[in-house]
Every structure is written in C-alpha cells, then in structure tokens.
Amino acid sequence: MRLNLKIWRQKSAKANGKMVDYTLNEVNPEMSFLEMMDVLNQQLVEWGDEPVAFDHDCREGICGMCSMFINGRAHGPMTGTTTCQLHMRHFKDGDTIVIEPWRAAAFPVIKDLMVDRSAFDRIIQAGGYVSVNTGSAPDANALPIPKENADMAFDAATCIGCGACVATCKNASAMLFVGAKISQLSLLPQGQPEREERAIRMVEQMDKEGFGNCTNTGACEVECPKGISIENIARMNREYLKAKIAQK
C-alpha cells in the first residue's frame, strides 16, 4: 500500500522544527510501524537525505523506548499497544499519517521524534525503591504476601516508563507513571517502612520537573500501552495526603 507521511523534523533541541511530507510506496501490511519507518529511512539514506531519528530498542513493547505520537494519539490508534507493536495492517492504502514526538515541557525534543525523558529517572531516584543493601535480605518465603496484593502490585509494576500518559494528558501530568510506582511499593510489605517519605519525595520531584496537574480526564489510562489503571493515581493521592498529615 501507499502512504502519505507527515513527520516532525527538528535538527536539534535548539533548532526550530517543522512538519515534512514524504510518500512511501509498497508498504506491506505485515510490517510493524517501526519497520515502515526503517524502510523510509533506508530510502532517505539512499537519496542522500538524513533519516528520521526516533527512539526504539526492544521492539517487543517492553523497554518503553519507542515514543511516537501518531495521528494525534500516543503510540497510534490501537489501545494497549506500543508504537513498535503497532502493525501496518491497521492502516489503509492512501492513508495520511501524521507522526510527531511526545510533546511536554518536561520532555524536551532532542532530535526529530526523540525526546529527553530523564525526568522519569529523577522521579524514581527521589524514592522509587526499597532501601535494602545487597546481601541483607531474609528468605524470600519468610513473608507470605496475599496473592491479591502481589497481583495488584505486579499490575502497577508493569509500567514501561514510556511517557505516553504524559504525552496524552492535556496538562502533561506524570501522575499515572508516578502513581504506578508508589502503588506497587505501598501494596507490598517490603515497601512499608519508607511508604510516607517515598510518596512525598516522589510527588515533590514530579512537581519540580514541571509536569502538570491531574484534572481527572482519564486520557492517560486510555492511552497507556500497559493498561495501568487510573486507580493508581487515586492511591497515590491518598498516600500523599496521609503522609502529609502524618508529617505535620
């Protein structure tokens, strides 16, 4: 099939960017979206142009590196799917596809479709861990954890840190990402000792990074490729409030 692509091109963080049109013939419906981009880039190289820079690595929907805003939706039209797992069979011959980077003040563009998501790392550094040194752990089965809690913690822990939630949110809020980590650890006994401090430090770091506030539109949950539930935001708010009250 034949596709019209409109792609955001931006030479560097400081340069101005613009949308550029490309036409791609002979796109195979079995290709993944990123393989379609590979084919475009091959052509650009052969023509003597610069290929489109984009982030990707695992191409299995797990590393969280790929990040394209496709036709106005983070990771494209399919729910529960990262860009790398999106396949061209979901598009039609003659379609026009608009491809942009994540847009958020806290995620500055590096080049073309690549953005800087290191703010997420700094939020985890602020408290997204259990303070346990290597070698000091008790036997793994010493502390049974009800399956239900373990499963809920697991669901929250499947966040891949892709940032689609931020890119989707009109306020560029990072609360789904932060809520997922705070929830995971607050649901597990291992997370209890630092529970309050963690909630406060992570939320404060999130604010410092310039992410917006949550106004409960729920868009993040819809676009999250891993189906992280918005309940995690509610839990985070509860954790934060409780911690703040305890602090007083």
Partner: peptide
C-alpha cells in the same frame, strides 16, 4: 531473596 526484598512482584 534479594529481589523479593526490593519489592519484585514474583
């Protein structure tokens, strides 16, 4: 043991 202590949800 170490991973469970870190909060890895096995």
């Amino acid at each position: 043991d170490q991973c469970v202590a870190q909060g890895v949800p096995f």
